[in-house]
Structure formats: structure tokens, C-alpha cells
């Protein structure tokens, strides 16, 4: 295969969507390498920017839960983060402000006093100053439980939500779960099953197996075969729509590559000079 052929064919993977709903999307990526498929998976899990509560200032907490316990729970509440880069241009490290400001953070308030016998404090009680960036809501549930109060107890606090990526803390991950599978019949023998009696009954083939031909009983092992078809199911926390998380993941990869490309410009003359290590000694 010559190089122009490669750029025409191998550089053109196929995508097909196999299912979609509010929280998740299933798709198949084919005609590409495992390394590329894995890069996309890793990027959308760990490097997509979202908003999450990062600082909590307690004014009053007479609940049975400690301040840090509640602060941790608040951090894990997904906030709507579509188009976060246009609304909040900077992370707090990039921002020129002293601590935080409207261009790198969003403020949220929670002021709840229990006057009834008991009540639940949920993400619906969190009031954001921002129009779009606020705790996720859905018709199907009544908010995410933060704490429970009995008569007379009170929680009153102020939160600062910041932009971040899941490499720093998993609360910034837009993905709740990313299912990733290839070679459902284990034709390539990339995995070894622990078996007592019978592989087929003890390790049922996943649904994706229906889309690939079952290997014949006496089929010889093709040691040159490479995975080519990758099955994804991306489920998000609600911070982003599933398709947004995937597109954002790809964008992260492009930005990383473009930044390296920009920096490669200056190193052409370095080659042949021995490199850093040789020059040092």
C-alpha cells in the first residue's frame, strides 16, 4: 500500500450510530486502529472541559453531615456545561484574576431551613447566578439528594463552580460510563477467559457479537489480524449531551495535535545537533 492510498483509505474511518437517547449514544467506529479508537475514548473521559463546584463556603450547617462531606457531594453534582468555553472563557489557572471572577467561575447558593418534620435538600435547592450553568434537571427525577434535614436544622452555603477536566478530578468528567468493545468473539485472543467447563455458556457473547460473524469451530488462528471495528456506548452525567461529549473529545485531540504542530516548527534545526542529552554531557 502506498502512502497516497493510505491517506485516501485508511484515513477515512466509518461511523454508524446504532442507538441514541437522552443520556447515551451507541455507535460503531470502523476502518481505523485501536490506538485511534482508544485515544477518542480516553479524551472524552478525561479531557473534556465541564463545570463543577470546586469551592464551598459554609455560612451555617446544623445538619448531621460534616461540611467537607457536603462539599464533596456538591462537587459531584453535574452542571449543564454545553458551550462552556464560550460562556466561561478561562479556567481559574488561566484567568488573570486574583482568586475567581465571572470569566472563570459561576456562583451558586444553597439556603435551606427545615420547618417541617423533615425534608430533603436536593440539587433543585441550589440556585445558580448563571442562566445556563446550573445543576442538571430532568423530568424523570426530583433532583440529586445532597442531605436530609429534620425540624430546625439548616444548611446555608455559597459555592464556586469552576471549569476543569477529569484528569484533575473525576467530577469534571462529562461521561458517566463509556462502554468500549472490539472483537466480541475474541477471535484475536486479546483476552483469556477463566473457564471451568465451557467457554460459551460461562462467557456469553455481548449484543455486539450479533453484528460479527461467529468464528467456525475449527478456524485457524489468524495471528496477523488486527481489530478494526469498535463498539462504543457513551453515557453522560447530563453535563453534556452524549454527542456533545464525543465531539468535544475529538476537538481536544485536535487542539493537542495543533499545539504540538505549532511547537514542532522551531525544532527542525535541533535534529543533527545531538539532542539535549548529548549536548549536556
Amino acid at each position: 500500500m502506498n502512502y497516497s492510498n493510505f491517506t485516501q483509505n485508511a484515513n477515512k474511518p466509518f461511523v454508524s450510530i446504532t442507538g441514541q437517547d437522552q443520556e447515551s449514544i451507541s455507535f460503531i467506529l470502523s476502518n481505523t486502529d485501536l490506538s485511534v479508537a482508544n485515544a477518542i475514548r480516553r479524551a472524552m473521559i478525561a479531557e473534556v472541559t465541564t463545570m463543577a463546584i470546586d469551592l464551598v463556603e459554609f455560612e451555617n450547617n446544623t445538619s448531621v453531615l460534616t461540611d467537607e462531606f457536603i462539599a464533596h457531594r456538591l462537587g459531584l453534582i453535574p452542571l449543564f456545561s454545553s458551550d462552556v468555553d464560550t460562556m466561561i472563557p478561562f479556567t481559574s489557572r488561566e484567568c488573570s484574576c486574583q482568586q475567581y471572577c465571572p470569566s472563570c467561575s459561576v456562583e451558586l447558593h444553597l439556603n435551606v431551613k427545615c420547618d417541617q418534620e423533615s425534608r430533603s435538600v436536593t440539587s433543585n435547592d441550589l440556585i445558580s447566578v448563571h442562566q445556563q450553568i446550573k445543576p442538571i434537571t430532568s423530568e424523570s427525577d426530583s433532583g440529586i439528594l445532597i442531605a436530609k434535614l429534620v425540624k430546625g436544622q439548616e444548611i446555608s452555603l455559597r459555592c464556586i463552580a469552576k471549569k476543569g477536566i477529569a484528569k484533575e478530578h473525576a467530577k469534571w468528567s462529562p461521561c458517566a460510563a463509556v462502554a468500549f468493545e472490539y472483537d466480541p468473539h475474541n477471535r484475536l485472543r486479546h483476552t483469556t477467559y477463566w473457564v471451568e467447563d465451557d467457554v460459551k455458556s460461562e462467557w456469553p457473547v455481548s449484543k455486539n457479537g450479533e453484528l460479527e460473524e461467529e468464528p467456525a469451530e475449527d478456524e485457524p488462528f489468524d495471528y496477523l489480524a488486527k481489530p478494526n471495528k469498535f463498539y462504543y456506548n457513551v453515557e453522560t452525567t447530563g453535563a453534556l449531551k452524549p454527542q456533545e461529549a464525543i465531539i468535544a473529545g475529538l476537538k481536544v485531540l485536535q487542539k493537542k495535535l495543533a499545539f504540538i504542530k505549532k511547537n514542532v516548527e522551531g525544532i527542525a534545526e535541533e535534529v543533527g545537533t545531538g539532542g539535549v542529552e548529548e549536548r549536556m554531557f
Partner: peptide, 25 residues
């Protein structure tokens, strides 16, 4: 250089096909 260009093209191709397929779905 060539590798970086190829990978950028590859990811943008995946991105645009993905967006088209989502629209069509």
C-alpha cells in the same frame, strides 16, 4: 509533521462523519 497532519485530518474526518450521522439518525 506528516503524522501530526494525518492525525488532525483523521480526527476531523471522524468528527464530521459523526456529526452527519447523528443528524441523519
Amino acid at each position: 509533521h506528516r503524522g501530526l497532519d494525518d492525525l488532525i485530518n483523521l480526527t476531523s474526518h471522524i468528527s464530521s462523519t459523526f456529526q452527519d450521522k447523528v443528524q441523519a439518525f
